[in-house]
């Protein structure tokens, strides 16, 4: 697949500032790191959650619970693709009861991923609250879901694509908007 990248809307510095701010907002809203747990949604959400965890650790000097969620098995469009999407491991190595869980994902779009993530989470236990942190909110929600912490609101047209790249996964920190009219899809 070859993409023509129209514009970088968020660069490494912007991402770093957003993560710092979100980390502080999480601590402020939850009054510290007690009972706090971060759960990243695969793949970029895990990377983001990890960075937030490091930041919170710097500020509060405490390790908070950390989990990884793969929502593939909870998707509502599982039979509409040509091939079954690969499933990766989910790991929530702590009891959710009484936790204030912050779900972390890279881009919030229709809200369907978050719906799936909440369903998956509830199967593991009963957290006291579930909050949502995203790096990019691009609008076009199809479900009544809203984020609690947002890195940046980016207005997009519905057929644009937003690609978040993280240096751990892609070698560079940046966010692009891809315009499908300039995209050569294989």
């Amino acid at each position: 697949m070859e993409f023509k990248l129209t514009s970088v809307v968020f660069d490494a510095k912007d991402i770093s500032r957003a993560i710092t701010r979100i980390s502080h907002e999480i601590l402020e809203r939850n009054k510290g790191a007690n009972n706090l747990a971060l759960i990243g949604i695969r793949t970029r959400g895990v990377t983001l959650a990890q960075r937030i965890r490091v930041k919170i650790n710097e500020v509060e000097n405490t390790e908070i619970d950390f989990g990884i969620l793969d929502i593939t098995l909870y998707r509502d469009d599982i039979a509409s693709g040509k091939h079954p999407p690969p499933v990766e491991k989910t790991s929530i190595p702590f009891p959710l009861e009484g936790k204030q869980v912050v779900l972390v994902d890279d881009v919030l779009f229709t809200g369907r991923t978050i719906r799936a993530a909440i369903d998956a989470l509830i199967d593991f236990g009963r957290p006291s609250t579930v909050q949502l942190g995203v790096l990019i909110d691009r609008g076009h929600r199809e479900l009544p879901i809203r984020p609690d912490y947002v890195g940046k609101n980016i207005p997009t047209s519905k057929n644009n694509r937003v690609r978040v790249r993280m240096s751990e996964d892609d070698g560079i920190d940046e966010v692009h908007i891809i315009d499908p009219s300039t995209e050569k899809d294989s």
């Binding site: 793969d70 098995l73 499933v87 491991k89 593991f124």
Partner: peptide, 15 residues
């Protein structure tokens, strides 16, 4: 990957 599902308290996914 699926092995982990059988170790959960609720051993079921809606797939």
């Amino acid at each position: 990957t699926f092995k982990e599902i059988s170790t959960r308290p609720i051993k079921k996914v809606p797939t």
